[in-house]
Design a protein around this nucleic acid. Structure first.
Length: 252
DNA sequence: CACACGTGGAC
DNA sequence: TGTCCAAGTGT
């Protein structure tokens, strides 16, 4: 849920989710559409589908227990490099290089002296993170969560709280006078009128309906017919929507 | 490697 | 008001 979504927005959904599905087996026993519905408006609903698929895989391949090896975690749907490392480190106290946007920003500033890290993870970043990671596994795990929290709470993207930072005296960026970011501009992420917005509107209709809906309900949710049809087809292809016959649609 | 993929709060 | 973007992943 936290992949590209602010913590504050995740918290209530996360709590309700665990109340309803306290184990991978509980989630795996549900229809995937229920996961999409419970996902609500967190965004990127394919994550809900992947989380459900991960629960199914955990039951099928790991006896219902979230695996503890990086490789097994990494093989689960929706679990990439960051999430596999984070679960192995935070849940199982392993020594893993956890490189999320917070850690990258902290190391970028403290070590490299730049306000923001590169667009994508570089080998140099990974080398710096590995170099700093303590050798002892549980100590490394604590280090990882600490650096991440430092980025989330103190070394924030905007308005960093340098006066309260425990490593301000050793921060290359602060020492250099907090120079402004001068790298390439980040591409603007348009949204209004995109397929993304159209898909979101269509899925919202199905999420808020108890069962299936006639296609006329979807037609009413987006004006541009060809875009609407393309998006509906892509939602079906993604497994987020199913055609139930007689021109009706529902969550899977 | 670039791009698609949702959403809503902050300024 | 429009712009930015937040504990990334898959293709």
């Amino acid at each position: 849920m936290l992949q590209q979504t602010p913590v504050a927005r995740v918290l209530p959904v996360h709590q309700a989710w665990l109340d309803r599905w306290p184990s991978p087996a509980a989630l795996a026993a549900e229809a995937s559409g229920e996961a999409v519905r419970a996902w609500g408006r967190l965004g990127y609903p394919r994550r809900a589908l992947r989380l459900h698929a991960a629960a199914v895989a955990i039951v099928a391949d790991h006896g219902g227990v979230v695996p503890d090896s990086y490789d097994a975690l990494r093989a689960l749907p929706g679990v990439g490099d960051y999430t596999a490392a984070a679960v192995a480190a935070f849940a199982y106290r392993q020594r893993q290089v956890v490189l999320d946007t917070n850690v990258r920003r902290v190391l970028g500033r403290a070590v490299s002296g730049v306000e923001f890290p590169p667009r994508s993870v570089t080998k140099a970043e990974r080398a710096v993170a590995e170099e700093l990671l303590p050798a002892d596994p549980p100590t490394a795990a604590t280090w990882s969560v600490a650096v991440m929290e430092l980025g989330a709470l103190v070394c924030t993207a905007d308005r960093p709280r340098c006066p309260t930072c425990p490593v301000v005296d050793r921060c290359a960026w602060h020492t250099a006078g907090r120079p402004a970011y001068d790298g390439p501009p980040r591409p603007v992420q348009t949204y209004a009128g995109t397929d993304r917005q159209c898909r979101g509107r269509l899925l919202a209709v199905l999420r808020d309906a108890p069962g299936s809906v006639p296609k006329s309900r979807l037609d009413a949710a987006w004006d541009i017919a060809d875009q609407r049809e393309r998006c509906l087809a892509s939602l079906v292809a993604d497994g987020l929507v199913v055609a139930t016959g007689s021109g009706r649609y529902s969550l899977p």
